[in-house]
Design a binder for these strands. Structure first.
Lengths: 218, 218
DNA sequence: ACACATTCATGAGTGCACTCATATATTTCA
DNA sequence: TGAAATATATGAGTGCACTCATGAATGTGT
């Protein structure tokens, strides 16, 4: 059946059929799940429905994700990685002031999330529990949050060096996290064209926040 | 059958049989649940087992608590109320410095939690998610957290009046919350006699924290 | 004391996330 | 190329939290 002549020379050589479909199925699951989460909500979407929509058996879902929540988490991992990369790879930002970097960071996130606004709304409710169900991502969720905040801390550190031992410094990422959740809420309820109100709010509040941070610190 | 002659005079009069057993059953459920949570863990304790231990049918559990998590939440509500009352009712504390009030608050909590150390450990893991499962208490949990932090804010406000509009003031309860979780962790792993290390840590850290708070603020 | 209303206990039933033994497809190696 | 080894798909099964129709117990008005 297979007209394949794999020239498996030395060691690492085989983007074989397996690896290919593996990636494809993973994507199909995530896509199907997100569509359903978006239209029916997280809780009311069954794993059976996800499997059906993805064209696979129910059990197969669990070969790719340990739990239903992990599927959603995977999405947020992509979202955070995407946003961090967007800031890292923007050379123009290299020597830009802190508030511009943070703006780009959050803006990238919002862009990524935009197509799934309904789902995000539901997810956020959970995540505010303060840590329930969807926020109850259990372990990887913590890691993700940590990765995100570590990046934020890195940006801050780059912009106003030293002062690491400041008694307040560990609070700043916590505060940013709360701020970020606030922005998300604002964004969700923002009915202005292209979410312009959110962007304006982001711009202003970051300016105020950063300048407060730097004044209070030095 | 009933040899009862209820002199139902005017309006509000009847601690009837109903209300009595209602309270009793509620207590039986909570007690049974806590014992099981403590010995077998939260997740591995089934509602059926709770019902059996409480001597009632499984469905009855759900006449008293909407979810299994609500049972645990009820326990924490009692815990917080108890601790707040302990501080409020201690007249000697009325004009004591802030750090003493906070000490009493947290100390009361730890005393209350002591018999269920194992369960707390499990619960804390969940609650750190940052908001998962047990922390996923969904709504009442938020209210509880809010009630607790509002009381803390009240104590702080009493001790160093004014300065309400300080840009940092909203962060202080958040910080205290994180601090409190830290204390719990410390306490859980504290093997010293009567948890003396925890108490010493509490004492010292509250002194430092409060004085920092007041210096930084005025 | 009797009927009507209300509250509550009951446990079989439901739907769901997740497991597992088995079948099937892919890769490896001679 | 074929057969052993390995990775993956499958869907009936499992255990659990939670629901609901029923009936029994308690409360209320006469």
């Amino acid at each position: 059946m297979a007209t394949k002549t794999p020239a498996k020379t030395s060691k690492a050589r085989k983007p074989g059929k397996r690896a290919q479909s593996k990636q494809a199925i993973r994507d199909r699951i995530v896509k199907a799940a997100l569509t359903l989460f978006q239209t029916k909500g997280f809780d009311t979407t069954t794993t059976k429905a996800i499997a059906r929509k993805a064209g696979i058996a129910e059990g197969t879902v669990f070969n790719y994700f340990r739990t239903k929540e992990d599927i959603a988490l995977f999405f947020f991992e992509e979202e955070v990685d995407h946003a961090i990369a967007a800031v890292r790879d923007d050379l123009r930002l290299r020597k830009a002031p802190l508030e511009e970097k943070l703006f780009k960071l959050v803006h990238s996130q919002l862009e990524f999330l935009a197509p799934y606004e309904r789902f995000i709304g539901a997810a956020l409710l959970h995540a505010l529990n303060p840590a329930s169900h969807l926020g109850a991502f259990s372990h990887r969720a913590q890691q993700l949050r940590h990765r995100y905040l570590a990046f934020v801390a890195e940006l801050i550190e780059d912009s106003s060096p030293r002062r690491k031992n400041d008694a307040l410094s560990w609070l700043v990422p916590e505060a940013f996290w709360i701020y970020y959740l606030g922005v998300l809420l604002f964004w969700l309820y923002d009915t202005s064209k292209d979410k312009q109100h959110t962007l304006a709010f982001l711009d202003r509040s970051l300016n105020v926040g950063v300048s407060f941070l730097q004044t209070g610190r030095r």
